[in-house]
Every structure is written in C-alpha cells, then in structure tokens.
Simulated scan of single mutants.
Amino acid sequence: MGQGTEVKTREDPKVEIQEKGEVFFFYRPKVDKEKAHGPDDVQRMYVVLRPESVPDRAVEEKQAPDSGKEGKKRKTRHGGDEKGQADGGNEGGHGKEEVNVEEKPLLRLIVMGKKSLPDPAKHGRPFWGYVDLVTTDIEDIKDALKGAEYDTATRGKRRQSAARAMGEGVYRILKHEGRGGRPHTHLVYKLELPSRGGEEGAVGEPQEAMNVEPEASFLVQIKNPEQRGGGRGGGGGGGFGGLQGKRKAAFPEHLQGRFGSNRYAPADPPDLLNYEGCELLLISASDDVEEELGLELQTETEEETERGAGGDGGEGGRAGAGCSDLVKMFGEVADVKPLLSGSWD
C-alpha cells in the first residue's frame, strides 16, 4: 500500500521527518493454543517497520549482515550448522553496512514487552520493547512469524502457532522540538487496515485490546546498552525486563556517541533501530497526530478516495486484501483474518 503522504496543517511546525515507511502489527497465540480469543491467549506482539525512504537520502546504516539472528540465518541457509551457531544467534547486532532502501527491502521486527502498545490517550508509564530481528531478506521475517513444532525435555512436542496480522499502515519517525526547546523523537502511524467501518475511529477487538488505535503518536527513546539499570522495579515500566549480556546491541562508535553519559537518547538517527538487541521505550503522546504535531498522515487509499478513484459501487479507495502489502508479503505464513475483519481468530 506504500508509505502514504503527509501534510503540514500549521505554519512552521517544529517537526523534521527523519524516516517514512510502512508499519505492520502482529500477535501470536500462546504455545499449544491454536487460536486466540482474547488478550490472555496472546504470547507476543510484534511491530514490523519497513523504511521506504528517508528525506534527502536513500541509504540507511544497519548492522553487519553476519551479526545477530540475521547472520545466523544466512549461515544456516548456506549450509552452516545451526546448532553450533546458537550462541551467535543470541547476540545483538554489531558492525555496519549501508543499505539503499529504494533498491532492497529493510525490515525490523520489534517485540513489545507487555504484548501491547501504550494507550495513546493516556500519558502513563513507558512500554519497553526491543529489536529482535533486522534483515534485508523478507524470508527471515516470514520464518519469524510462521508456526513451528519443537521438542522439549519435560513436556515433549509442543506447537507454536503462526502469528496473526492485525494492522497495516504508514508511519513516520519525526524529530520534534517541544515547548522546552529540547528535541525528541516521535513514532507516529496511521492504519490503513483494518478498514474503519460504520463508527468513525472504531477499531476491532484485537486492535482495541492491544491499543492499536487508528492513529497514534509515541515518544520513542533508545536505551544506552553501555549503561546498567532499568530492569524490573528500576523505573523502566511496561514489561521492562531488559536484555542481558551479549543480547544487547553493539552500536558503532558514532552511534554509541549519541548517548554521551545518558541512559536514553532519541531515535536520532533512526539507524539506531537497525541493530538487533536495540532496546526502546514507547511513551504515549497523543491519539490525534494532527492536533499534536500539525501533521496529517494520509494513506494511499485515502489519497485515491480524494482523487475519486474506483468510484464503482462506493468502494473507491477502500483498503482490502487485494492492495495490502502485508498480505502480499506475509499472507502465506500469517493468518490475516484479524487484519481484514477486525476480529479475533
């Protein structure tokens, strides 16, 4: 469905767009559950970000392709011993390479600690998450989302169900100068699927349960991997258990330098998110992006509707499976019923 567009609705809003792209939301039922009928049946929530362009530059810096889970998957595909590389697969991303996002896909798989987003209408405690996988190979994301069976020493064979898709839209990472004049960064998004039905602003049951609103704005902060603290009971909040040891990202010197002696830093540049083991906090800012930031996001289907496209039978611009990038990329491994219907399995 593409990255959509944005329109500034106030004069000189102090907002700088650092990254544009598509956002996809998924959840996975708990082990040995074939379906999820409510949030108590959910094991994990995933957010996938796919940058599609960056103003004034098409190149993003990411971890070296032989690091983290990405490196493990590459070695396994080329005949390596997966068992022998298990430890390497649990390490965070390190090194660096440049990726032209106009020539190849770049995808980040983020795990949310509390299995939901913060409620964008409430200014509460931060919600912790971490970048679990960064890759230029869509097959890696498919592998992470699909179902699997595995053996355990005490419970025998267990079944992990495939992930369910529950949201698709456009996102922006913004640098914003607030009232105090101190820059910070926002992650803002607007959903294209599931389509909004009768009541304006209504969302489906899984989306409501996991706070995936039609649009939202969150402050995003990156944790300094070289600073200790922030574990349970340490003020991190929102499921902030923290990653341990080698699982943390190992940023190159010029990115690590963005933290100074601080425990957290803005996602500036967004390249910080291109390292597995990058820990982040999402903090509720607003459920009305235009009111808060003077910026209105438009999805591609909204643009088509304004242009009067597809005016046959009143379906002009309405999003559906046929134009969904999520369905095209991941529909073969992830159940898309919650995405298209806004209902549980």
Rank of each mutant, 00 (worst) to 15 (best):
G2H: 02
E16H: 01
K20F: 01
F26D: 01
V31K: 05
E34A: 15
E34D: 12
H37T: 06
D41Q: 09
V42R: 03
M45S: 09
M45H: 06
Y46P: 06
V47M: 13
L49P: 07
L49G: 02
L49W: 09
P51V: 01
P55R: 06
D56P: 04
E60K: 11
E70A: 03
G71W: 05
R74I: 03
G88S: 01
G89Y: 03
G89K: 02
G92N: 05
G92R: 02
H94F: 12
K96F: 13
N100E: 08
E103K: 15
P105R: 00
L106Y: 02
L107G: 07
M112I: 08
L117G: 05
L117S: 04
R125P: 14
F127W: 11
F127E: 08
F127S: 12
F127G: 09
K142T: 12
K142E: 14
E149A: 08
D151N: 12
T154H: 04
R155C: 09
R155T: 13
K157A: 14
S161F: 02
S161K: 01
R164Q: 10
G167E: 10
E168P: 04
V170F: 03
R172H: 02
R172G: 08
L174P: 00
G178F: 03
R179V: 13
R179A: 15
T185Q: 10
H186P: 00
S195A: 14
R196G: 15
G201K: 10
G204D: 05
G204H: 08
Q207D: 05
E208I: 00
V212L: 07
V212S: 08
S217I: 02
Q221G: 10
G231M: 06
R232Q: 07
G235M: 11
Q244C: 09
G245H: 13
G245N: 06
A249V: 10
Q256M: 14
G257S: 15
N262R: 15
P266T: 08
P266D: 06
L272M: 12
L273R: 05
C278A: 15
L280T: 03
L282R: 03
A285R: 06
D288E: 06
E291S: 15
E292L: 14
G294S: 02
T299R: 07
E300M: 11
E302F: 05
E303T: 08
E304F: 10
A309I: 08
G313K: 08
G314D: 14
E315T: 15
A321K: 11
L326H: 14
L326Q: 10
M329P: 00
F330H: 03
E332D: 15
V333F: 07
A334F: 02
V336L: 11
V336H: 04
P338Y: 02
P338D: 02
G342E: 08
G342F: 01
